[in-house]
């Protein structure tokens, strides 16, 4: 992949935006805050627990990493975005919360009240 001109860059950007929009409309995306602070609070274990759960339950979701969301006090932070719903940011998530959180949110459609930090309009 090489970007040789401004035209190349714009075409690539458009394609990526389209792909992303499509993904947001059809797939559930789970994002874990993985900066040093998050990892110090246990983000790597939460990330692994999510991957394990996805594999075990054969869930059709995309798991992503991101940098610092800013709310260090609430680490580990996990954002769940389901198509057509507002994004929900969960805080202080522990690996053992993951099965319940995913099943409640993605499968049952309920927001895990005790872990929720904030919702974002999608």
């Amino acid at each position: 992949m090489r970007v040789n001109s401004v035209d190349d860059l714009n075409k690539l950007k458009e394609r990526l935006q389209k792909e992303h929009q499509l993904k947001e409309q059809t797939d559930t995306i789970v994002t874990v805050g993985m900066s040093t602070c998050g990892i110090a609070a246990g983000a790597r274990k939460v990330y692994e627990a999510i991957l394990k759960e996805v594999e075990k339950r054969n869930l059709n979701i995309i798991v992503k990493k991101t940098g610092c969301i800013g709310l260090c006090e609430q680490e580990v932070l996990v954002e769940v975005a389901c198509p057509g719903r507002q994004k929900i940011l969960y805080g202080k998530v522990k690996p053992e919360d993951v099965p319940k959180l995913l099943s409640e949110h993605i499968v049952n459609g309920n927001v895990s009240a005790e872990l929720v930090v904030v919702g974002k309009a999608s």
């Binding site: 040093t36 602070c37 990892i39 110090a40 609070a41 260090c72 006090e73 680490e75």
Partner: peptide
Amino acid sequence: GACGQAPVMMVNDDTHGR
């Protein structure tokens, strides 16, 4: 630089917080 998780220590490359 992980002040949000203070107090913090690293053991080799693993960071442990709070």
